[in-house]
């Protein structure tokens, strides 16, 4: 029983981790049909923000929960104004331009901080025991944060005027513009919010993974695959794809080892896209967000 609980917790953490790294990308993709390949670097920048801030004596909780999303959100704002806004509607070009951006960020961070980890920060929470097994308290905290984050996104989309306007723009940008909504401003806000969520995710994961200039590459493939498999609905898509892919990964990792867990995840994504070329939410739950 204890083994079962511990395993379930491990799988749940895998799912939460996947949802956390892909949520920012899903917001941007779902709202704006923009695939941001610099997403991994937004996570990386969030991680660096936390490391630099804690090294300068800032409280780690403040750095992770406030500073990282703030800094990366501002970077996202600059990126949107300088680059993305010229490329709306050109999906492939956006993809390539953001790829260039990701290389640029890796280059800048490598030049500034060097190619290796600057400081390792330890997770601020201790271990939790379940019967004979111990589990990391920080992982439990992350699961909690992901749930809160998903609820927050849902509430924002459903019950605020920003959410209403954003959903209108998502459904039909021209019609929204006719009704007097500045769609350009909505895109700007959405993109920087997506970036802020990515920054938060990067900051939260920094104590577990450490920070490296090219750590984004590890995230981007998984996030990209999760978002595309999920389809265009932000919440339903991310959640369903994370549950499916994270679940497969967790179970296969337990049965055979980490490599085949990863391979199983990617393989499931391929099969899924062959069966449902528009993602899970392109086929099911079409009316969800």
């Amino acid at each position: 029983m204890d083994l079962f609980f511990s395993l379930a917790l491990q799988i749940l953490y895998g799912i939460a981790n996947l949802a956390l790294i892909s949520l920012g990308l899903a917001i941007v993709f779902g709202m704006m049909r923009v695939i941001n390949l610099a997403h991994g670097e937004f996570l990386m920048l969030g991680g660096y923000t936390v490391v630099v801030a804690t090294n300068n004596g800032v409280n780690i909780w403040f750095a992770m929960l406030i500073l990282a999303p703030l800094v990366v959100g501002i970077i996202g704002l600059i990126v949107e104004r300088c680059l993305i806004q010229w490329l709306y509607g050109r999906m492939i070009d956006t993809l390539l331009a953001t790829w260039g951006l990701s290389l640029l960020f890796i280059g800048i961070i490598t030049s500034v901080f060097g190619a290796s980890t600057s400081t390792v920060i330890s997770p601020p929470l201790g271990a939790v025991t379940i019967g004979d097994y111990t589990s990391s308290g920080y992982e439990l905290f992350l699961i909690f944060v992901v749930i809160v984050l998903l609820i927050l996104v849902y509430l924002t989309l459903k019950f605020t005027s920003l959410g209403l306007v954003a959903r209108a723009t998502m459904q039909n940008a021209d019609m929204a513009a006719c009704l007097g909504i500045s769609t350009s401003r909505i895109y700007m806000v959405t993109f920087s919010l997506g970036a802020a969520v990515s920054g938060l995710a990067g900051g939260l994961l920094a104590p577990i993974t450490g920070v490296l200039p090219n750590i984004g590459v590890i995230y981007i493939a998984k996030a990209f695959i999760t978002v595309i498999s999920g389809g265009s609905a932000i919440l339903a898509g991310t959640t369903s794809a994370s549950v499916l892919l994270g679940g497969v990964n967790g179970i296969m990792s337990y049965v055979t080892g980490p490599t085949f867990g990863e391979v199983a995840l990617l393989f499931t994504a391929i099969i899924l896209l062959r069966l449902m070329p528009t993602g899970i939410t392109g086929r099911f739950f079409r009316k969800s967000q």
């Binding site: 331009a97 260039g100 290389l103 640029l104 960020f105 890796i106 280059g107 490598t110 030049s111």
Partner: peptide, 14 residues
């Protein structure tokens, strides 16, 4: 940094 240069080239060209 080589990445930096490649990134700038890609962005400018797109």
């Amino acid at each position: 940094n080589a990445n930096l240069v490649l990134g700038i080239i890609l962005v400018i060209f797109v």
